[in-house]
Nucleic acid binder design. Structure first.
Lengths: 199, 199
DNA sequence: ACTACACCGTAACATCTGTTACCGTAACGA
DNA sequence: TCGTTACGGTAACAGATGTTACGGTGTAGT
């Protein structure tokens, strides 16, 4: 047999290049040539590895999700109980450093791309739901407040995380890590406090 | 003098076309020809009215902000007191019908475009801050909880609104109006409740 | 060493992008 | 009524885009 092989590693490297491109050129700057340049190769390699641009995007989208999933899983298994697991997962989902801020920008880029691509939209929804489901599980496991259903409280938490990420991506100076943390502290308290009569 | 006038009305019409295009083609589909088609004219008119594409986007961005500002102002002046004004402003900022959902998609489109355009980014930040400032004012006027600063509570509220909008834009079926309302009910309670000892 | 073949860069392609230049045309003042 | 002049459509332009086809290159098996 001649030359060795193509590789899953190539896919990973190209997906990484997609993140870099999306983070500082946005969806309109996400071009095959820009991706190839950041991956240090030519568009030829890109389209030999993926059938077309959409497949590249879909793979990168999955890689992004997988990365956060692994991170959350690790946090969960390291936590002493469900309540602290919930806190850890939520806080580490915030764009509190430059790397996670870049991830938030990438996230927005994908969401925007999903506006014009139903398949990407479906994938995006799938991953969003996965995060919400995780929060539901952790909320139920940590007991407490059932005046409002766990699903609704999880959605509220997810919205808070998403909102902070989105706002921080668009205006980082207004959203230092301390403010991000404070915002989620408030929402965490509201969604995990023991049931009490409505004021 | 010959022919009559160009008009601010043309700018408005073209901005409207930008919204339509952005809502269902996304940032990558936001092309001058697509805008012109939806405005029922040719690219010629577009670039006779605006110097270039960026100026068109900036104008549309301002129109979008102005629209929500007027809506919020009206809600404020119709409200009996600051507390109900706050509730009205927040709830009416949610993507609770198809028109507002389209606005949320447009919002995301602009944010994504801002990722690759510093001037658009600055404008976006400006408008986001204006909304936050409004919430600060209403929170201060409605008294209550000062265990956490009004600025931080306003940011939390803004994040909740932004988060619901973003998530609903990406997965409308998961975010019926009732869930949107419920989520903000929780956050409103957390940010306006009278101060109480931490559980 | 040699051959065969998978890898991947090069370059061409049709199409689409923003932008510009050119004119026909229609409305206003005379 | 008629000339003037801005308005706005047509179409051309250079550059960029996704995609395809081709050809060199180096590696692995014999």
């Amino acid at each position: 047999m001649p030359r060795v092989r193509d590789d899953e590693a190539t896919r990973q490297r190209l997906s990484e290049a997609v993140f870099l491109t999306l983070a500082d050129r946005g969806p309109t700057g996400l071009t095959l040539r820009a991706v190839a340049e950041r991956a240090g190769c030519s568009t030829g390699l890109v389209l030999h590895t993926f059938r077309d641009k959409r497949e590249l995007l879909l793979h990168a989208r999955d890689v992004l999700h997988e990365r956060t999933r692994v991170r959350s899983d690790a946090l969960e298994s390291d936590a002493a109980d469900a309540a602290t697991a919930l806190r850890d997962v939520v806080f580490h989902a915030l764009p509190s450093d430059s790397e996670k801020l870049a991830e938030a920008r990438v996230w927005i880029g994908f969401l925007a791309a999903a506006l014009s691509d139903p398949i990407l939209a479906e994938r995006h929804a799938l991953h969003s739901r996965a995060f919400a489901t995780r929060l539901v599980r952790l909320l139920e496991a940590s007991g407490a407040s059932d005046a409002v259903g766990a699903r609704e409280r999880a959605s509220t938490l997810a919205a808070a995380v998403e909102g902070v990420s989105t706002l921080a991506a668009g205006d980082p100076e207004r959203w230092p890590a301390s403010r991000q943390r404070q915002a989620l502290e408030l929402v965490l308290e509201a969604t995990t406090a023991v049931a009490r009569p409505i004021a």
